[in-house]
Design a protein around this nucleic acid. Structure first.
Length: 505
RNA sequence: GGGCCUGUAGCUCAGUUUGGAUAGAGCGACGGCCUUCUAAGCCGUAGGUCGUGGGUUCAAAUCCCACCAGGCCCGCCA
C-alpha cells in the first residue's frame, strides 16, 4: 500500500490520482483490496476489513545518531515564553525523532562565559540579589534589568569580570544556582536533556583542538593587514573566528562545539547527575558522533547558522547539519528583551500559574500551553495573548485531552468485549488515521515541524468526537475495537507533543 | 545593496518542499442538539480577487519571473 494517499471520499480508504498509476488491475487484484472505483480522476480503494486487523504503527527506522540542541537559555534570567517555545518545540521534535532514529541525544548548552552572565555576576558580587521574587532565576533576571542601566558607567569593571571568568571560571557556582532554578521550570514542563554542556568546559577542553583542526584543514585564515588585522577568519564568509586579542567570537566557539557533536574533535568530560551528563573537568570522556545535528535556534540567527552549515559541508559533508528555525514570540508591545525587563509577568512560570488558575488542573494547564505553542508552525510569528494561549475550547490542549478522556471512558464503560466484526463507513473514516501514521511522522521530521503532529492529533480528535456523538459505542464490539485502535495511536501522538496522558479531567 | 522568512474567511492559522478531487479548521456571528458511553462536546448557516501582475502546464494557493507590503539578518556582540 505504498505511495497511496488517504481517500477523501467516505466509504473508501485509500486513493491515487489516475495519472500516477500505470497498472490498475494489479491494484484491484491486491489481496488487501475489497474494491476500487474511479471517481473524479482518482482511483478510490476500499480495503478489506482484515487489513485493519494486521495494521501496525511502524515507521521506517534509520540507524543514525541525532543530536538536537535546545533550549540553551542564558543562565542569568528565568525562562520567558519565547524560551518556552524553543524548549517545547525541541522536546516534541526529540520525541518524534525517536520514532525514526536509533539514538537521539538532547543537548542543552550553558553559556556561562557570556557578557550577559558577566553583567549579572558583577551585580551579584557587588550588590547581592534582589528579593523581589522567591525563585533565584527571577531575582537575577530582575537585577539584570538594573545592570543594564549601569553598564556604560561600569563597563571596564564588567569586562574585567568577564576576563576572570574566562581565566578562572569564577562564576560557575553562581551560574549553577541560576541553572538549578531554571531547571525547576524545565522539570515542571517535562523538558529534559541528555547532555548539559558549559561553554567554560568547551573553552578549556576542546577549543584549541577545534581551531587547530580548522587551521590544519585550511578553512580559516590569518589576516595580516587591513581592518581585520590580527584575526582569524573563515575563508568563505570572512567572518572573524579569533579576535586580534586571541579570544574567540561566538561563531568560533559555536563551530568548535558543533564539531564536537559530530565527533570531529574530542575531549569533553562528563559526570552524571539525575540522568543527565554534565560537562565537568573531573569526569569521564564521552562523545556523541552525531550523523544529524539539529539546532533549535531563533530564525534571526539564520545567517549565522548558514555560515556553520557551509563550513560543515566542507569539513564533514557526511554530516547533516540542520537549523530548526523558529520565529520569536512577541508581545503586543514588541519583542521580549531580557534587558528591558518586558518579560516580567510573561515568564514560563507565570504562564503555568495562570493556566492553572483557569483550568484548575495541572495536566490541563500544561496541555493548553503546550498545544498552543505546538499547533503553530515554528516559522509563524506568535503574538502572545492570554486568552488565545490558554483557550479551553476549539483547537486547544483542553479539547485534545478531553477527547482522550472520552476514549478512556468508552473503554471503562464497555458492555462487551472489543472485537472487529464489521466496519461501516463511519468506522472507516476514523480508521483512516491509522493509514496516515507513517506519512505524518515522516513529514514532521522532513520539515522539522511538530505542528504537523498537532494538526494530526486535532483531526483525529475532531473525527472521534463526531463519531462519538453519532454512535452508541459501549455496547458495540466493532466500534469498541475501532476506538481502542485509535486510542493507541492517539496516545503515541500525545506523547510526541509532550502532552501528559491522564485518565480523567 | 545582498540574503532569509511571512502574506489564504472579520480575526488567528492549516494546506505550498512532492502541482491534481468541491481551498480546510478554530475564534467571533447566527440557528439547532443533553431522560442514553464526560455538552470543556456535536450538527447546521453565513463568510474566500489564496498580496498584485505575468509565465509554464491538460491542471497552479502550490512551480518560475517581476513587483507590493510586513518582519528578520548582514559586528573583532552573543
Amino acid at each position: 500500500m505504498e505511495g497511496l494517499e488517504v481517500s477523501k471520499l467516505k466509504g473508501y480508504d485509500l486513493a491515487i490520482n489516475i495519472r500516477k498509476i500505470d497498472n490498475i488491475d494489479k491494484l484491484a487484484n491486491n489481496p488487501d483490496v475489497e474494491k476500487i472505483d474511479i471517481i473524479n480522476g482518482y482511483v478510490n480503494i476500499r480495503l478489506k476489513q482484515e487489513y485493519y486487523k494486521k495494521i501496525e504503527l511502524n515507521t521506517d527506522r534509520e540507524h543514525k545518531v541525532v543530536a538536537i540542541e535546545y533550549p540553551s537559555v542564558n543562565p542569568n534570567k528565568p525562562w520567558h515564553i519565547g524560551h518556552l517555545r524553543n524548549a517545547i518545540i525541541g522536546e516534541s521534535m526529540y520525541r518524534i525523532l525517536k520514532l525514526k532514529y536509533d539514538k537521539v541525544e538532547r543537548i542543552d548548552y550553558i553559556d556561562d562565559l557570556g557578557l550577559q552572565v558577566a553583567q549579572s555576576y558583577w551585580y551579584y558580587t557587588k550588590y547581592g540579589v534582589s528579593n523581589e521574587h522567591d525563585k533565584f532565576d527571577h531575582r537575577v533576571g530582575i537585577d539584570y534589568v538594573k545592570v543594564n542601566q549601569m553598564f556604560q558607567d561600569n563597563e571596564h569593571e564588567i569586562r574585567e569580570i568577564l576576563r576572570q571568568m574566562e581565566e578562572n571560571n569564577i562564576a560557575r557556582d553562581f551560574v549553577d544556582k541560576v541553572l538549578d532554578a531554571q531547571l525547576e521550570t524545565a522539570k515542571l514542563y517535562g523538558i529534559g536533556a541528555d547532555y548539559r554542556i558549559y561553554e567554560s568546559d568547551i573553552k578549556r577542553d576542546i577549543f584549541e583542538v577545534g581551531l587547530n583542526k580548522l587551521k590544519d584543514l585550511g578553512y580559516i585564515e590569518y589576516i595580516d593587514n587591513g581592518d581585520l588585522k590580527g584575526t582569524y577568519v573563515t575563508k568563505l564568509g570572512k567572518k572573524v573566528i579569533i579576535r586580534s586579542d586571541g579570544t574567540a567570537t561566538y561563531l568560533g566557539k559555536d563551530i568548535t562545539f558543533q564539531m564536537w557533536k559530530a565527533g570531529i574533535i574530542d575531549g569533553l568530560k562528563f559526570i552524571k547527575k539525575d540522568n543527565t551528563w554534565y560537562s565537568h573537568n573531573k569526569g569521564e570522556f564521552k562523545n556523541i558522533k552525531a550523523n544529524i545535528i539539529i539546532n533549535v535556534i531563533g530564525i534571526e540567527q539564520s545567517s549565522h547558522q548558514n555560515e556553520i552549515k557551509e563550513i560543515f559541508k566542507q569539513i564533514a559533508p557526511e554530516v547533516n547539519y540542520l537549523h530548526l528555525a523558529y520565529q520569536r514570540v512577541k508581545l503586543k508591545q514588541g519583542h521580549f528583551s531580557g534587558r528591558s525587563g518586558n518579560w516580567i509577568g510573561y515568564t514560563a512560570d507565570d504562564l503555568y500559574r495562570e493556566a492553572l488558575n483557569r483550568t484548575n488542573n495541572h495536566d490541563l494547564a500544561l496541555a493548553s500551553i503546550k498545544f498552543f505553542i505546538l499547533k503553530h508552525n515554528p516559522k509563524t510569528e506568535v503574538i502572545f495573548d492570554w486568552d488565545k494561549a490558554l483557550s479551553t475550547t476549539g483547537d486547544s490542549g483542553v479539547y485534545v485531552l478531553y477527547s482522550y478522556v472520552r476514549m478512556l471512558g468508552l473503554e471503562r464503560n464497555a458492555l462487551v468485549q472489543p472485537n472487529l466484526e464489521s466496519l461501516d463507513d463511519d468506522d472507516r473514516e476514523l480508521l483512516k488515521y491509522l493509514l496516515m501514521y507513517k506519512s505524518s511522522i515522516d513529514k514532521a521530521i522532513r520539515y522539522l515541524d511538530p505542528s504537523v503532529i498537532a494538526e494530526y492529533v486535532l483531526n483525529i480528535a475532531e473525527s472521534f468526537n463526531s463519531y462519538y456523538s453519532k454512535h452508541r459505542i459501549s455496547n458495540n464490539p466493532s466500534k469498541l475495537w475501532v476506538v481502542n485502535k485509535i486510542k493507541i495511536l492517539y496516545e503515541k501522538m500525545l506523547n510526541c507533543l509532550t502532552i501528559p496522558i491522564v485518565s480523567s479531567i
